[in-house]
């Protein structure tokens, strides 16, 4: 019984940490003075979302969250690459 309470407390603590991390990312996303700051914050937000999905998987004891985490990682990579490319080339005044 004690191991179960210990584990659930640890999961709750880690979930709270990651949610706090997501709040910090969102603040940087909102105040970020330049566009590259916002892209960096968005990328970190994707990563935090992936961690959140993994933790929810442990909390609910379900493996379906693994697929969600994999897809979140894939989408985050592709979208950040597209945004970074846009920053580099998008507003060039030729």
């Amino acid at each position: 019984m004690t191991t179960a309470t210990l584990l659930s407390a640890a999961i709750l603590f880690a979930l709270a940490c990651v949610v706090l991390a997501m709040v910090l990312c969102t603040l940087r996303l909102l105040i970020g003075p330049s566009a590259q700051d916002r892209v960096l914050a968005l990328d970190t937000l994707w990563m935090c979302t992936m961690l959140l999905a993994l933790m929810l998987g442990i909390r609910h004891g379900s493996e379906i969250y693994f697929e969600a985490a994999l897809i979140i990682a894939l989408l985050g990579f592709v979208s950040t690459i597209a945004l970074a490319k846009f920053l580099m080339r998008g507003e060039v005044i030729e």
């Binding site: 004690t2 191991t3 179960a4 210990l6 584990l7 407390a9 640890a10 999961i11 603590f13 880690a14 979930l15 709270a16 940490c17 990651v18 706090l20 991390a21 997501m22 910090l24 990312c25 603040l27 940087r28 960096l40 914050a41 970190t44 935090c48 961690l51 933790m55 442990i58």
Partner: peptide
């Protein structure tokens, strides 16, 4: 318990490191 302890420790450590990294970003 021998599995629960490392899992709990790793979860707490991972959460703390994640929040420290974004604190740096902030």
């Amino acid at each position: 318990w021998w599995a629960a302890l490392p899992v709990a420790f790793l979860l707490v450590l991972g959460g703390l490191i994640a929040v420290i990294g974004t604190l740096g970003l902030f």
